[in-house]
């Protein structure tokens, strides 16, 4: 009871801090918005890469699809800003999820390194296609419509939108991990062959997990496209070497396969990156590289994984003899 009370207090404090943040530090509002975007990146990547053990290098695909689909709707629908944006986000979410559903059964049939390489190819191919397709602006990209309100409201608007998305993404994934969905994902991570031998529909679940990740990622792409205002095929929509890699790094830094790990990883990564960028300009990439190296070498299970010190659990003593007769009521079999 006491623990629950303390937890409720912590959540309330976090929520309050998140709400007042853009008023306390108005010049950082856009930064905060990006931080929320990073949380969505890390949490969605971890669903497939951490909980399910499928290291995807191509999740950026869904981000880009969401960004482009939304921008196209905004350009061609003829709606005003608000309805155009709303419909755009919805269409983007559908397009991203659909892409995962179509590609999933094929790509997710690859295992281990082959899956990693295959998804890497997806991201690269998408960037090349987008850069050559005139309907979506080809190499010169697309601009999104101008936000109609005041400039300081603009940052706040996108911040709260992305904050809401990050919270919903986190809560949904946590809820999913508590049930059968989470059990299946972990089983696939630990031994997919065994899972099949036990009759689990692994392909269906793998695709479903990728679709959930794609759903939230494509929404984030749609919103982020409007936040940035300009969609470049290689440097924004399908930016595999920045966003695409950051997703993975943030999940690893925080602790892959843990509930809070990706969130904490996103905070640590984003803040570290900004600090390096501000104080070590010119050397920021070197510093970031060193930081990642230290984490991977010394904390391979991430921040949360390392903090979870292995306290001896109850029942850890050896006992290699079965009780004389099992106490079981066979009529219990349902």
């Amino acid at each position: 009871m006491k623990r629950r009370g303390r937890r409720a207090a912590l959540y309330t404090a976090l929520a309050a801090a998140a709400i007042v943040a853009p008023w306390l530090f108005p010049s950082y509002a856009t930064q905060f918005a990006f931080l929320c975007l990073m949380v969505v990146f890390a949490v969605t990547w971890d669903m497939v890469g951490g909980q399910m053990g499928y290291n995807s290098f191509g999740n950026i695909l869904f981000f880009g699809i969401g960004a482009y689909a939304c921008a196209v709707v905004q350009r061609d629908s003829g709606f005003g800003y608000a309805p155009g944006f709303a419909v755009g986000v919805a269409v983007g979410a559908c397009a991203g999820t659909l892409a995962a559903a179509v590609l999933g059964p094929g790509i997710l049939a690859l295992r281990g390194h082959y899956f990693a390489i295959g998804t890497l190819g997806l991201g690269v191919a998408a960037a090349d296609i987008a850069a050559g397709w005139h309907y979506i602006g080809a190499g010169s990209g697309m601009t999104t419509p101008l936000f109609p309100g005041a400039i300081q409201d603009r940052a706040k608007f996108f911040y709260f939108l992305l904050l809401a998305l990050a919270v919903v993404t986190f809560v949904t994934s946590r809820r999913l991990y508590q049930g059968r969905f989470g059990l299946v994902l972990n089983a696939i991570r630990d031994d997919e062959g065994k899972a099949e031998a036990m009759g689990l529909r692994t392909t269906g679940y793998k695709t479903m997990a990728w679709c959930v990740a794609a759903f939230f990622l494509s929404i984030s792409g749609a919103v982020a496209g409007n936040l940035v205002g300009y969609i470049d095929p290689r440097d924004f929509a399908f930016a595999g070497s920045t966003y695409g890699v950051w997703m993975i790094l943030m999940a690893i830094v925080g602790g892959r396969g843990t509930v809070w790990g990706p969130v904490i990883g996103a905070f640590v990564f984003h803040i570290t990156q900004e600090v390096f960028w501000t104080y070590l300009l010119g050397w920021q990439r070197v510093a970031m590289g060193l930081f990642i190296l230290v984490v991977v070498v010394y904390f391979p299970s991430g921040i949360v994984g390392s903090l979870r010190t292995r306290a001896p659990r109850p029942g850890g003593t050896e006992r290699e003899v079965l009780p004389e007769r099992a106490v079981v009521d066979p009529t219990r079999r349902q």
Partner: peptide, 23 residues
């Protein structure tokens, strides 16, 4: 295929023992 047969109620265990190690 393997999962279909398993779902019919024919389950096997493995010589090398396969469990989900990190659960």
């Amino acid at each position: 295929r393997v999962p279909e047969i398993a779902r019919l109620g024919l389950i096997r265990t493995f010589q090398q023992t396969r469990i989900y190690r990190n659960m």
